[in-house]
Design a protein around this nucleic acid. Structure first.
Length: 324
DNA sequence: AAATCCATCAACCGCAGTGCC
DNA sequence: GGGCACTGCGGTTGATGGATT
């Protein structure tokens, strides 16, 4: 026996909402709230609608502060970046865009943004904003890919961009620096999504072979970085050094998931952030700190990078800060 | 002007997760 | 612990209107 239907389908109206229905629903909710029970709401409000339908109509259309209309370029960037890192978790993406609904964003992605990305001229400014990800073969310095199929885009999202663990979305660990600001959107605009950045790290389980500090290799994209692959990382670091509009911070998270992260820094405010796993308890004790030093050293960036011990101690014990 | 194609987006559907009894 | 009710989410559908033939 299947589940009982949520409502009597025979006596429920379907299809587009009339203005009268909208008024009824809006007035009822503004007066009485949802009462935490959408199933009972339509009857109380005098609507011949399914509770789910009422909820959807309210959330996607009637509730206050809903933003309709064109998406801004900043919103585009946020959606693209988050899609690349967490995939089609629209509700989470919507949470970062005040006034936008998950349904809106989903539709926008499917109908416009996806096509926009795929059809984008390779050297357009917009395209250059976001660095691509590569499996193991980095492009020559400053070379952006000329084409990426949708499948590779998805493969990228799934395998090489940071794929957060569930805990990433808990208040204490989800981008702590970002959420601590008064305006997440503003911060994203200024830093994460306006800088070139790379996110290394991947499926937590695949990202490192060890959780007890004995892992001797840096990981990215669910793969361990071999020494010879570090040149790949270096190519981006060098790009950042040569282009004064870009600034990278090299961070190193760890704990159960040892991820190397290269993230953005807002030059004007000096505000830094790391996208990656933040669960390392005491980075100063973390022996793989040496790996970072080695990486920087072998990349010839030694004079430019330094490890900011003070900031690491003051700002966030879970993230190491390096600057150049 | 009519027919067809295509893009958009509101709404639906089914499933998973959660909480309560 | 199991069953049920309910919510929330993401994929999909279909009505609509504009563009093209």
């Amino acid at each position: 026996m299947g589940r009982a239907p949520c409502c009597d389908k025979a006596n429920v109206k379907k299809g587009p909402w009339s203005p009268e229905e909208d008024v009824k629903l809006k007035e009822y909710i503004e007066k009485y709230g949802t009462g935490g029970n959408w199933i009972a709401l339509p009857q109380k409000a005098g609507l011949k609608r399914c509770g789910k339908s009422c909820r959807l109509r309210w959330l996607n259309y009637l509730r206050p502060n809903i933003k309709h209309g064109e998406f801004s370029e900043n919103e585009d960037k946020i959606i693209c970046s988050l899609f690349a890192s967490i995939g089609s978790r629209w509700s989470i993406i919507a949470a970062q865009l005040p006034g936008r609904t998950d349904n809106d964003i989903k539709n926008y992605w499917n109908t416009k943004l996806k096509k926009k990305l795929l059809g984008m001229p390779p050297n357009s400014p917009h395209h250059q904003k976001k660095l691509p990800c590569y499996n193991n073969n980095p492009p020559p310095l400053h070379q952006t890919p000329t084409s990426q199929s949708l499948s590779s885009l998805f493969s990228c999202a799934n395998n090489n961009y940071y794929t957060p663990s569930k805990s990433l979305f808990e208040p204490a660990s989800f981008l702590p620096n970002l959420t601590s600001t008064s305006s997440l959107l503003e911060t994203q605009d200024q830093t994460l999504f306006s800088s070139n950045y790379l996110m290394f790290g991947g499926d937590n389980q695949a990202s490192c072979s060890s959780s007890d500090g004995s892992c001797s290799q840096i990981s990215y994209g669910g793969k361990e970085i071999k020494q010879e692959e570090m040149g790949f990382v270096q190519s981006y670091i060098s790009s950042g050094l040569e282009d004064h509009n870009q600034k990278f911070m090299l961070g190193y998270g760890g704990g159960d998931d040892r991820n190397l992260n290269i993230c953005g820094e807002d030059k004007s405010s000096g505000y830094n952030f790391v996208v990656g796993d933040h669960r390392i308890q005491n980075p100063l004790d973390y022996d793989q700190h040496q790996d970072i030093k080695q990486l920087i050293s072998t990349n010839g960036c030694n004079n430019n990078f330094f490890f900011d011990e003070n900031k690491t101690q003051q700002q966030d014990q879970k993230v190491m800060y390096y600057y150049y």
